[in-house]
């Protein structure tokens, strides 16, 4: 069964674009990455799926139920971590969990205690007194306390320190092993690469590409910068997707076999060589240009 199925999902805010004709299929048991720069439409898509906003056209199902007609039933089985975490100022974290718990039919107290222990959170403090990282922990716990079938995470790692981030990812993997589907939006490629099975790349409101993580890894995009003692030579390799020359320095966005490139470069007199993982923006630009050419 598909946990998320969107067809032609479109949202305009007045005249300004949210997302246009988004098709998405997320299978049960997947960790699905949803990646794109800020303003690409990630949050809009999530807010549509949770019916905070209404689609201009198109439709979608979550857990086999229509997102508009059966929203409450969907939410009983969905845990959501918002990008910006804000709760009631006058409540302590513990009160918030109890309040949240009462909205679900099942008893979440035991699971809540486990999660609080796991993330080492002081539940007696008022929400407004918590640091950003601790606020994020509150969001994680309230999203997981009712043991949902689907987790919808909107850039969930912001504010978490590396240790907590690791614990969080570990928790997501455990939940996933137990059958929970994870929909993970992010603008950081490396965290999506660490966690996800499949990834959709979204830009300017449209899904540009859906790829298996293993395929994306195989393509091995690299940013390569080489400086030469003399003039920059003309390189002609199939893996060079774009290049730029600056004085004696060559900058290449490379998507082929790195050995070929190194072999080719070694024939010249180099003064420096840098090979880096590209930023999401670079990868995104590549897909975006490719899309434009087609």
């Amino acid at each position: 069964m598909n946990v998320i199925e969107a067809r032609g999902l479109t949202k305009y805010y007045g005249k300004s674009r949210g997302i246009v004709d988004v098709d998405l299929t997320v299978a049960q048991g997947e960790i699905f990455g949803f990646i794109g720069p800020n303003g690409a439409g990630k949050s809009t898509t999530i807010r549509l799926l949770l019916n905070f906003i209404f689609p201009t056209r198109g439709h979608a199902q979550v857990l086999g139920k229509d997102i508009v007609k059966h929203s409450p039933a969907i939410k009983a089985e969905v845990g959501y971590i918002p990008g910006e975490v804000d709760y009631y100022d006058d409540m302590t974290a513990g009160e918030l969990f109890a309040y949240s718990d009462r909205y679900y039919k099942k008893d979440c107290r035991q699971r809540t205690r486990q999660l609080v222990e796991m993330f080492d959170l002081d539940t007696k403090k008022k929400f407004r007194e918590l640091s950003l990282g601790n606020k994020k922990k509150v969001a994680i716990i309230q999203a997981l306390q009712h043991q949902p079938q689907l987790l919808v995470l909107d850039e969930p790692t912001g504010g978490l320190d590396p240790l907590m981030q690791r614990r969080f990812f570990q928790l997501l993997r455990e939940e996933n092993k137990g059958g929970v589907t994870v929909f993970f939006s992010s603008h950081i490629l490396s965290e999506v690469q660490r966690l996800c099975h499949r990834v959709a790349i979204i830009g300017e409101g449209s899904v540009l590409k859906v790829e298996d993580m293993s395929d994306l890894r195989r393509t091995h995009f690299r940013n390569v910068r080489a400086s030469f003692a003399g003039d920059v030579p003309d390189l002609d390799l199939p893996g060079i997707l774009s290049s730029q020359v600056d004085n004696n320095t060559l900058q290449v966005f490379f998507g082929g076999d790195i050995n070929e490139l190194v072999a080719c470069l070694s024939a010249h007199n180099l003064t420096g060589l840098w090979v880096e993982e590209p930023s999401l923006e670079d990868v995104f630009m590549h897909y975006y240009e490719e899309e434009g050419e087609q």
Partner: peptide, 17 residues
């Protein structure tokens, strides 16, 4: 205003509720 709508409406309740 307090940005708590995202919490409240993620609960299994309808707008009517």
């Amino acid at each position: 205003d307090e940005k708590t709508a995202e919490f409240l409406l993620a609960k299994p309740i309808s707008r009517h509720y």
